[in-house]
Structures are given as C-alpha cells and as structure tokens.
C-alpha cells in the first residue's frame, strides 16, 4: 500500500470572533486520506465544514488543531498546519491547486489570461500558455468570443468553467475541487467528469466536494462524510446539566 499524498488527522477549525465575542465551530475532528491518482469525496450537509477543510489544506484558514501531512514529489513530508508562509506559497505555485466555489481572479484580465495564470507563474511563455488555455476552454464549451473578455460579466456557469480550466491547466499534484460542477449544464458536467477521470489517470490526487450522489459514485475512490460540529454553547449546556 502506497503512502497517501495527503493525510489529515484530527483537524478542527473554529473561528474566534472578538467583536461578537463568539466561538464558531466550523469543522471538528476530521480524518481523511488522499492518494495519488485517486479522488476522495467530501460529503455532508451544508454547514458540516466541507469547504473549511479545503480552505485549511490551502491555508486560507489557519487550522485550530490537528495535522495535515502532505508528501511532495521528493517524498518530503510537510505538516500544512505548521508550514511557513513561503513553503505554502511554493506549494501553491507548484503542487497544490484549488478550484474554489466561486471564481476569484484579478480584475481586468481576459478569461484566457486568467486561465494562463498558473502556467505563467511557473515560468512558461505566455504564448505557449495561451495555446493550452484555449484548448482547455474549448473543451469546457466556453464560447470563443468570450476568451478575450474579463470574466466579471460572465454567467455563473461560464465563470465556473474558467475557474475549472485555471485549476486543471497546470496539472497540480493535489487538486482541491469545491463543487466543481454546481452550476454547469449536463453536457458540460459530462465533459468535466471525463476531464477529472483523465487527470486521475495521469496521477493527480483530488479532494472534492460534490452534492450529487451520482457524481460521487462515478468519480470517488474514497468517501468521507462530515457532520456539522456541535456549537460551543451546546457543549456548555451539556456539561452544566
């Protein structure tokens, strides 16, 4: 049995909001593994902390406790919960991709250049990057007349496709997908499924959130179900009674 590329052990995240004087639990005691060339699906109701787990792995959130061991190409292990900021930036550039639920991108850049970003950051020539970006946007059914336009005015589904194309273009070792097909039409969803299967066979490891059980059945090698964490006030009441 090979070692997992990502192993999360006892991850919890809560937000301490000073202004409201509240402690908001977001996810608690999460365990999971992601393997090379496989997809681990995160399922559970809204509020179970699925996106929080992803954001902790990407370190957009600072985990409150637990370990997240990532093994890189040279077989070095890094606990993402403790990694330095520069190490995280390096991993984001080379190893870990994140397709967030909603597209966040630099304003005033054409869709094509938004998709190119990860390649350009890795030092690939812009023209070569644009060629690959065009191919991917075509594959995801984004009409060619939109490629030169900033995505700000795009529909939800079009933004989602640009977001996916940007996440898939650089073939990261570990890809985080937060509801990648949420606002796509059935034909495009099929394309995305094909794409996910194809990058899986290339060895990309994926951690993904899906809401449709059908997709989970078709794509997931492992399934992890999260339940909403217990609110702190409830714990206090239980202790008191």
């Amino acid at each position: 049995m090979t070692q997992p590329i990502l192993e999360i052990d006892g991850l919890s995240k809560h937000f301490q909001l000073y202004e409201q004087n509240k402690l908001i639990p977001s996810c608690a005691n999460v365990h999971l593994q992601v393997h090379t060339g496989q997809l681990t699906a995160l399922i559970g109701p809204t509020g179970a902390g699925k996106s929080s787990v992803m954001k902790c792995v990407y370190r957009t959130y600072l985990p409150s406790s637990g370990r997240m061991i990532y093994r890189d190409g040279e077989d070095h292990s890094t606990d993402l919960a403790q990694a330095s900021e520069h190490r995280m930036l390096e991993l984001r550039q080379r190893d870990i991709g994140f397709v967030t639920q909603f597209l966040h991108c630099l304003p005033r850049r054409s869709a094509l250049d938004v998709v190119c970003e990860p390649l350009v950051a890795q030092g690939i020539e812009r023209e070569a990057a644009r060629t690959r970006a065009s191919a991917l946007l075509g594959l995801l059914n984004v009409p060619e007349r939109l490629w030169g336009v900033p995505p700000a005015t795009f529909s939800g589904g079009e933004k989602q496709r640009v977001n996916l194309a940007r996440g898939l273009i650089s073939r990261p070792r570990l890809l985080l997908l937060d509801e990648p097909t949420a606002s796509l039409d059935p034909p495009t969803t099929e394309r995305v499924i094909e794409l996910i299967n194809s990058i899986k066979s290339e060895g990309v490891a994926m951690l993904a959130i899906f809401h449709q059980t059908e997709l989970v059945q078709r794509l997931a090698d492992r399934v992890v179900e999260l339940t909403p964490p217990v609110a702190v006030s409830d714990i206090l009441e239980t202790c008191a009674s």
């Binding site: 370190r59 957009t60 600072l62 995280m88």
Partner: peptide
C-alpha cells in the same frame, strides 16, 4: 502576519 488570503478571510 500571514498569507494575504488568510489575513483577509481568517
């Protein structure tokens, strides 16, 4: 101090 997205979101 931190990664900019972390400072802004968490």
């Amino acid at each position: 101090s931190g990664l900019t997205d972390q400072i802004l979101e968490d």
